[in-house]
Structure formats: structure tokens, C-alpha cells
């Protein structure tokens, strides 16, 4: 029982910490990566609640679909004042 409580507290900490990182970090790409960490730790919470099918769906739909879409958008809408934006044309 103590081990289970420690596991819950640990993954709750990971969930809340990486969610805070999503809204507090400056760069959008870092936000997207931290969102992936938050979604994966929510999947761990589902496994602890005996919802294994939902955990699989969480990883497939969110990490495999939604996060990839967000990654595409991050790559497509890089702003021009950022230094990375011009590297494409210099290469």
C-alpha cells in the first residue's frame, strides 16, 4: 500500500511538473516535448486505475496523433525573427 501511494505521488509530481513546464517554458517546441511527457504520465495513471485499454488509446491517439500534428504545426510556423528560421535558406 505504501509503495502504491509512493508510485501515485511520484507520477502525480511528473504530471503536474511537466504540465507546468508546458505553460512556463519560452520555446514552443520545448512546450510540445513537455506536453508529450505529461500525456505519457497520464497514461501511467490510467494503468494504475486498471484502465489498460484507455492507457493504450491515450498513447496511440495523443502521443501518436495529436502530438505529431502539433509538431508539424510548430515546424511550419516558425517565426521569422527566430534565428532558426533562416537556416533553411543558408544551407
Amino acid at each position: 500500500m505504501v509503495v502504491e501511494t509512493i508510485a501515485f505521488a511520484l507520477f502525480a509530481l511528473v504530471t503536474v511538473g511537466s504540465s507546468l513546464g508546458v505553460v512556463l517554458v519560452e520555446d514552443v517546441w520545448h512546450s510540445a516535448l513537455l506536453l508529450g511527457a505529461a500525456l505519457l504520465s497520464v497514461a501511467v495513471h490510467y494503468v494504475m486505475l486498471q484502465a489498460e485499454f484507455l492507457a493504450a488509446m491515450q498513447i496511440l491517439v495523443y502521443v501518436g496523433g495529436v502530438l505529431i500534428l502539433i509538431t508539424f504545426a510548430v515546424m511550419l510556423v516558425r517565426r521569422e525573427d527566430e534565428p532558426e528560421a533562416m537556416e533553411v535558406f543558408e544551407a
Partner: peptide, 10 residues
């Protein structure tokens, strides 16, 4: 401050 890869807080 412009080395790029390190995450910075807003």
C-alpha cells in the same frame, strides 16, 4: 543567452 538548445522559462 542565444545558445538555443537550453530550455528557458518565460
Amino acid at each position: 543567452p542565444n545558445d538555443g538548445s537550453r530550455p528557458r522559462l518565460k
